[in-house]
C-alpha cells in the first residue's frame, strides 16, 4: 500500500509541474525549457528554511514561491525578447545558469553535497509523519493548482493568452500589452513549479543540484507534449503515463542496464511518433507553431 501512496505523491508533484508548464507552453505558445529551475528554487528555499531556520513548511513554501516569482520575472523579461527556437535555447541556458548557482553557492545550498534531512511539514506543531497524510497534502495542493489553472484558462485572461499564441501581432494591434500577459503567466507558472519543489523536497527529504538539470526540464516537457498541449487533463494523463512507465519496466524484469535504456528509447520514440502522427498529443487541442 505504501508503494501506491508513494507513486501517488510523485504523480501529484509531477502533475503540478506539468499543468503549470502547460500554461506557458500549451496556452501561451512559449517553449520554455527552464521549468526545472523554478522547481529547484522552490525545493531549495523550502529545504534551507525548514532545516537551517526551522521555519514552518507553509511559510517556507511561500518564500520559495516568492523567490521563484522574482527569478521568473527577471528571466521572463529577458526571454520576452526572443521567439520560437531562440526562446527555447535561451530558457535552457537559464536552467543551466540557475543550476550552476545551486552547485556553486556552497554556503547556502550545500553545493553538490545537497541538503539532507529535510523535515516533513507540520500543522500547528503536528508533524505529518505518515505518507498517507502527505498524499492528502499533495492532493490538496494539486487540486488547488489544477482549479486555479482551469480558472485562468477559462477566464478572459486565458483567452487573451491563446490569442497571443495564435497571432501575437494581431493582439498587439488591438492595444493589448502582449509582454505583460506573457510575463504574468510565466511568473504564475514558475510559482506553481516552486510549490511542486517544496512538496518534493520535504517528501524525498534530500535534494541536490542534479535533480534540477535540463534533463528534468525536458522530461516535464515530454509529459505535456505526450498528454497534449493546451489540455490540462492531457497533462495529467501524460504525467500518469510517464511516472508509471519506469515502474512497469521494472516489473517486467528486464535486465537493469536494458530497462533504463529501454525507458529512454520509449521516451524518445514517443516524442518522434507524436510529432509525426499526432503533434497535438493524446488529448491535446493545440499544435505547436
Amino acid at each position: 500500500m505504501e508503494y501506491f501512496i508513494h507513486i501517488g505523491i510523485v504523480f501529484f508533484i509531477y502533475a503540478i509541474l506539468a499543468v503549470s508548464l502547460n500554461l506557458v507552453v500549451g496556452y501561451t505558445g512559449l517553449l520554455s525549457l527552464a521549468h526545472a529551475a523554478f522547481f529547484g528554487i522552490g525545493a531549495y528555499a523550502t529545504a534551507i528554511l525548514l532545516t537551517k531556520y526551522n521555519i514552518n513548511f507553509f511559510v517556507s513554501a511561500g518564500v520559495g514561491m516568492g523567490l521563484a516569482g522574482m527569478a521568473s520575472l527577471f528571466i521572463g523579461i529577458v526571454l520576452s525578447k526572443f521567439k520560437d527556437d531562440y526562446y527555447a535555447l535561451a530558457s535552457l541556458g537559464f536552467n543551466v545558469i540557475v543550476c550552476s548557482f545551486f552547485i556553486n553557492l556552497d554556503s547556502i545550498t550545500g553545493g553538490v553535497i545537497g541538503i539532507p534531512g529535510i523535515k516533513k511539514p507540520s500543522f500547528f506543531g503536528l508533524e505529518i509523519h505518515s505518507n498517507f497524510a502527505y498524499l492528502i497534502l499533495a492532493l490538496v495542493f494539486f487540486v488547488i493548482i489544477f482549479l486555479v489553472s482551469r480558472f485562468i484558462v477559462q477566464s478572459s485572461f486565458g483567452r487573451a493568452l491563446r490569442a497571443i499564441r495564435d497571432d501575437e501581432n494581431a493582439l498587439a494591434v488591438f492595444g493589448y500589452k502582449v509582454l505583460n500577459f506573457k510575463l504574468v503567466i510565466f511568473v504564475i507558472s514558475a510559482m506553481m513549479a516552486a510549490i511542486a519543489g517544496s512538496l518534493f523536497a520535504s517528501y524525498i527529504t534530500y535534494i541536490d543540484p542534479s535533480i534540477f538539470t535540463i534533463t528534468e526540464s525536458v522530461f516535464i516537457l515530454t509529459i505535456i507534449i505526450l498528454g497534449g498541449l493546451s489540455s490540462l487533463r492531457g497533462s495529467l494523463l501524460g504525467a500518469l503515463f510517464l511516472i508509471l512507465l519506469p515502474e512497469y519496466l521494472r516489473i517486467l524484469g528486464l535486465p537493469n542496464d536494458t530497462a533504463a535504456q529501454v525507458r529512454q528509447i520509449i521516451y524518445g520514440l514517443a516524442l518522434i511518433f507524436l510529432m509525426l502522427y499526432r503533434p497535438k498529443g493524446l488529448v491535446g487541442e493545440y499544435e505547436m507553431k
Partner: peptide, 21 residues
C-alpha cells in the same frame, strides 16, 4: 519548426539510449 525541434530531441534521446545499450 517547434515540431521539428521536439522530434529532433526525440532522436537525440533514442540515439543516446541505443549507444548506451
Amino acid at each position: 519548426h517547434m515540431i521539428f525541434m521536439v522530434a529532433s530531441l526525440g532522436i537525440l534521446i533514442v540515439i543516446q539510449a541505443v549507444i548506451s545499450l
